[in-house]
């Protein structure tokens, strides 16, 4: 047992921190981000080794793919900005001395370093303490296994996510929604995200892949009931389709009405919340489904959340609220604020 797979485990476990170190130490930010994406893929491999296929799927799609895309687009945006700034400086404007002086920087270093070490030591102690506190042979695995029959699904992780600890997932969907609200209230997206023409290959690729991605997202949501998969993975695939459409500079994307986007964003959280309230009203606890219908409820919530997660993640990638429609006048501008307020009010 300890032969081939053990060596593989060891190499993998060593590669992760090494890659993390290289990533933070590399002077070039672009290289750091590429290393970050490869670290995410190695993490996905690690999840498979640790028998967590659900997490592996989510990590590969969200942790490596989508986060990497977010970082790369942010870097691109910053570089474009600083490029403009540099041109401005060369045009004759004297640049101000607003850099932190190196002395102060250096003086701050030992303090920061000491603080980091202290925090780390505290954390290690806490971790060791909590590991020692864990009861032997414990864990919630047997308990979940016992109750799995009445959860309505056959996959343990989905049962925990949407039935036993459904309120966690409810809150988490809300966090995602809040993040989208935050980004939307901060800036307005500037399309196109790419400067240059996408070219025929990318256009055809998008045309081919976008419907297939919708199919795969549906499949992931369906298979989540019995095996690895679920709303997050399906939503991530939908978001990837959205990112592809944004990158390919498809005109249709710009013509999607903002109201539709807003409803897509709110669909999952609203339905989830509604279910929770209905469950309470029917005399149960929060998100305590009727046992016979649990499977149907979970499937409904999962599909709605998958759509919402997809729209939300794609909106986060776009990095702002939808651009103003060119033809209409200011009537559309009033809309987003009012709708967002209504949603926020509905949540409380």
């Amino acid at each position: 047992m300890m032969d081939a797979m053990g060596i593989f485990d060891m190499v993998l476990a060593l590669a992760l921190p090494w890659l993390g170190w290289r990533l933070l130490a590399s002077p070039d930010l672009f290289r750091a981000m590429v290393l970050f994406i490869s670290l995410g893929l190695l993490m996905a491999l690690t999840w498979v080794r640790l028998q967590a296929p659900d997490v592996a799927l989510a990590e590969a799609a969200i942790g490596a793919g989508l986060t990497g895309a977010l970082f790369l687009s942010a870097l691109r945006r910053l570089e474009r900005l600083s490029e403009a700034e540099r041109r401005l400086a060369f045009a004759g404007k004297r640049e101000e001395e607003d850099e932190i002086p190196p002395e102060r920087h250096r003086r701050a270093k030992p303090v920061a370093y000491g603080l980091a070490l202290l925090l780390l030591a505290v954390f290690v102690l806490l971790l060791a303490w909590s590991l020692a506190q864990t009861p032997a042979g414990g864990g919630l695995g047997p308990a979940v296994g016992e109750q799995l029959g009445q959860s309505g699904v056959r996959s343990e992780v989905t049962a925990v996510l949407l039935n036993f600890r459904g309120y966690d997932t409810l809150l988490e969907v809300m966090v995602l929604f809040l993040a989208a609200l935050g980004v939307w209230s901060l800036t307005r997206v500037r399309l196109p995200l790419q400067d240059e023409e996408p070219g025929p290959v990318l256009a055809t690729l998008v045309r081919l892949l976008a419907p297939l991605m919708i199919m795969v997202a549906g499949y992931l949501v369906w298979i989540g009931g019995s095996r690895a998969g679920g709303a997050f993975q399906g939503g991530a695939v939908l978001a990837a389709a959205g990112v592809l459409l944004l990158l390919a500079n498809v005109t249709v994307v710009r013509q999607i009405p903002a109201a539709l986007l807003r409803w897509g964003l709110a669909l999952g959280p609203l339905l989830f919340l509604l279910t929770a309230v209905v469950c309470v009203a029917a005399g149960g606890n929060l998100l305590e489904y009727p046992p016979q219908r649990a499977g149907a409820w979970i499937l409904l919530i999962e599909s709605a959340s998958a759509v919402s997660i997809g729209v939300t993640l794609a909106a986060l990638y776009a990095g702002g609220r939808p651009p103003e429609p060119p033809a209409q006048d200011r009537g559309g501008e009033q809309g987003p604020g009012r709708d967002a307020d209504a949603d926020a009010g509905g949540r409380q």
């Binding site: 419907p211 549906g218 369906w222 499937l299 599909s303």
Partner: peptide
Amino acid sequence: IIGLPAVSAAACCS
């Protein structure tokens, strides 16, 4: 149950 909406959405998208 999931397949029908997914298939029709994919077909429309395509």
